[in-house]
Each structure stands twice: as structure tokens, then as C-alpha cells.
Write a protein that binds this DNA or RNA. Structure first.
Lengths: 241, 241
DNA sequence: TAGTGGTCTAGACCACTAG
DNA sequence: TAGTGGTCTAGACCACTAG
């Protein structure tokens, strides 16, 4: 009935921070002082402070106190998936080929593999309303006996391709986002002209030890591409119930 | 001395999830069962579960149990700031003008203001190694007596401009990221040709009630622009100590 | 030495779920 | 009705900080 005490404390302290009554760098009241102020036990106060810390409002320094954090102005949450991050989703994909190839210097660098190690090369074209909208290249280190099932590769995102065995929880990912003018090959594949810009998304997948387990580039036709991101200071996206 | 019990429990459950021993959708042991397994009090078990939930591994359904989450494959953390998100930072900015203007339909729509309301228009060019690399336009709803201090605007990021009074904690932000070919005006300002792509970043700032308090677009020369994002499933960036 | 936050206990009462 | 997670208490001992 009504919101719990610890959330009331959270809201009160948030209000003080949002209004500027207490500022970044300031120490807030000690846990014992808050216990007295709200007439609650210390565990309840600590629950409130845990919430405030997880939302980025405060941090604690053991032996000293709890302090108001600097707001993280520059941090956003971005949702990206090469199969549905464009205007109007991908309707179909065309699997150009799957090959086992010698790595180029660039691939050796990005996958951190020895130069005699082979890699699986997957090339796809994404189709929207009958027209090619993206050209997609993936490299995965090859090991003997690796099952490469074309049907599975066809419609899968990169993390899905790489994680056939490994849990997706264990994969770290890095994205690089840039623009370029199309070269001759891209112009042919995407059916575009010199003046049409191309959005380039580089994806790197890493295992728990940050060893690369996949590297890929997707070239999107510029007019079919838009990414969105939202400020993340209060990130409640993990809270389902 | 050594890590606390609750972190041991966290690591054990993480290992079970990462190895696939327990899968997304599965219910994990009840809190009381975990109390017995580790011979600890329920509050200690709950501390562990709170950590796992905040890192996205599990979620709880009151009355039923705790469940393994679906990994959020598509979620990334992006750091963006129009003053330092390019290759080689901005060395200087040129303030083209600050004016109070009638809003266009686009501005009315994006700032959600009445059409008779005036807006402050700020136009800047960002300079790197003596050359223009970005063209930056901001719109802020104008109110009578609003102090517009050119010195403050000159080198400030958008959140800084808008938040002179309001705490940065209270501002929500939205980014849109897209590409375009340069129009005549951009070609002149950035000194580029038709074939040079332009990265377009649209920023919208909103107050606590999600009312727009600022809207702006930055046009970056494509070859000076790259964004990076990292997977965020385990987001420890708020933990300072 | 007094005060701070970190960890942990052994209980309590509650609303909710599902047989 | 038995079991689950959510909130809360009133204590304890610890390492660390800073005068």
C-alpha cells in the first residue's frame, strides 16, 4: 500500500539533487543521520542509497561518506542490430557466399589471429522492397570441423552467428560508426552513385577474455539508415516487473 | 579479506548462466534454497540477486521466483558530445550568430511550441587544424529577459547551454544519427564537394516532463567523424570506487 | 578516537501465486 | 494452503578516514 519508505527517501534525495540544493561533489547526510531523519533502520537507508548509486546519482567512499556524482552528460543508450536498425526493416537477405579464406593484414589485426589461421568469410546483401540496401561482410576465425550451416547464417545477426555454442551473455561487442563515399564495388552492389553516402558500421565481438571472435562490416545505403540513442542516466531498461 | 559472500554467490550464478547450465526463461533456485545452499541469511542472498538483476542477468516475479533474463543483444553504450566525438578534437569554434527568430514548422514540431513563440537560434562552426569540420545549429525556446551570453555559448555543448539554470541530472536527451549528401549551403560552409558525405546528428533535450527544451543539428564532415559504442550488458560505468 | 560506509544475521509481516 | 519474493528491523563486527 503506497510506495515503500526506501523509495520515498530515494525521491527526496533525487529532488534535492535535481533542484541543485545539493550539488555534484557534495557529501550527503550520513547513513546514520538519514536513519534518524526518516526514523528507519540503517538497512532501509542503505537500500535507498543503493538505488541512487545504481542510477548514477551518488557514489560512496568508504570511511568518508556518500557523494553526489557528476552527471554523465555524454552517455547514451543505443540499440543496434544490423537486421532492423534501418528505416523500414530488412525484408530479405541474399547470401552471396560463405568461404574459408586466408586473412588479410586487416583481418589478422582485427581478429588477433596468427597469419596462417584461416577465417570464415560470409557475405550477404540485405533487401528492402526488392532493392539492395546494405552489404554485409563477416569474418570468423575458422577451426577444423566447424559446422557452417548456410540456413542458419542466412537470416542471423552477427551475435547469433557467433554464439551458436556460447551463451550470448558472455559476448562483448564493439561498434564503430562512420560514413564514406561508395567505391566501385559498393556502387555496383547497392546500385548507387558517387554522391550517395554510405553508412559504415563495424562490429567486433569478443569473448569473456576480450579475445576477438568475430569482426564484420555492414555498408548501409545512406538514405535507408538512421540510428537513435537516448540518454541513459536513469537506465531502468533491465527492470521488467 | 577475500571477496564477500554475496559476490561469491553472484559469480557462481553468473557462471551457471554463462555456461548455459541455466538458460533464459529458467527459474533459478528460490531465495530460501540459496540461503540453505550457502548457509547465509536471506538478506545476503537478496543482495546477490539485486546485483544480478542490476546487471541484467535475472529478473524477479513476486510470488513466483527469480528468472534468467534474455540477453539484450542489441543494447550498446554510446558516448557522444558534439565537441569531442570526432577524430582529433575540436580546436576552436566560430560563433556565426545568435538570433531571436520566428520558428519554422519543423522547429515548432520539434520544440512543441506555439507558432507565435520566438526561439533563440545559435549557429556555430567547429574548427580543426584551421579548417571547418562541422556546422552546428541549435534552437532554444525564447522567453523574455532570457540572458544570452555569447561568451558562454561559444565553447559550450548543447546540454551545457540549456542547463545554465537547471541541473543536468534533470535533462533527458535523444540523438538521431544519419547521413546525407551536402546541399549548397553545407558545401560552402564546410568547403566540401558533392561526393563528400556528411554525418548528421540531431539532438533533442527534454526536461523532467519530457517537454522539449532544446533542439539542434550538427553536420560533420564525414572524414572527420567516427562514433564508438560498446555492449552494455554489464554496465559498471557508474561504479567509481 | 569517533565517525563512516560494507557486510551479515535472524528474525518479522506482507502481497502474491498456484495448486 | 504452502511457497515465493518485497519490505523492514535492531542489532553485530569490520576496515577505513581523519583529526
Amino acid at each position: 500500500m503506497g510506495s515503500p519508505i526506501y523509495l520515498t527517501i530515494v525521491e527526496n534525495i533525487k529532488t534535492k539533487i535535481n533542484s541543485g540544493e545539493i550539488k555534484p561533489g557534495d557529501m550527503i547526510k550520513s547513513e546514520n543521520a538519514l536513519c534518524e531523519e526518516y526514523d528507519v533502520s540503517r538497512m532501509t537507508v542503505r537500500k535507498s542509497l543503493t538505488v541512487l548509486a545504481s542510477e548514477g546519482y551518488i557514489y560512496s567512499v568508504p570511511g568518508k561518506g556518500n557523494f553526489v556524482n557528476e552527471p554523465n552528460q555524454d552517455k547514451y543508450i543505443l540499440y543496434f542490430n544490423e537486421m532492423n536498425s534501418i528505416e523500414g526493416s530488412i525484408e530479405d537477405t541474399q547470401l552471396l557466399d560463405v568461404n574459408i579464406v586466408k586473412p588479410t593484414l586487416e583481418i589478422i589485426f582485427n581478429l588477433q589471429i596468427p597469419e596462417n589461421k584461416r577465417v570464415v568469410l560470409i557475405r550477404r546483401v540485405f533487401i528492402n522492397e526488392g532493392n539492395p540496401v546494405a552489404y554485409d561482410i563477416k569474418y570468423i576465425p575458422y577451426y577444423r570441423g566447424m559446422p557452417i550451416v548456410e540456413k542458419e547464417i542466412h537470416y542471423a545477426t552477427f551475435p547469433e552467428i557467433v554464439s551458436k555454442k556460447k551463451s550470448l551473455f558472455a559476448i562483448n561487442k564493439e561498434l564503430k560508426i562512420k560514413v564514406q563515399k561508395p567505391d566501385g564495388k559498393l556502387k555496383g552492389i547497392l546500385g548507387i552513385e558517387d554522391t550517395e553516402p554510405v553508412m559504415v558500421i563495424e562490429q567486433k565481438l569478443l569473448d569473456e577474455g576480450n579475445k576477438p571472435i568475430g569482426w564484420g562490416i555492414t555498408y548501409f545505403k545512406g538514405d535507408f539508415f538512421q540510428l537513435q540513442a537516448v540518454s541513459s542516466f536513469v537506465d531502468k531498461s533491465n527492470i521488467i516487473y
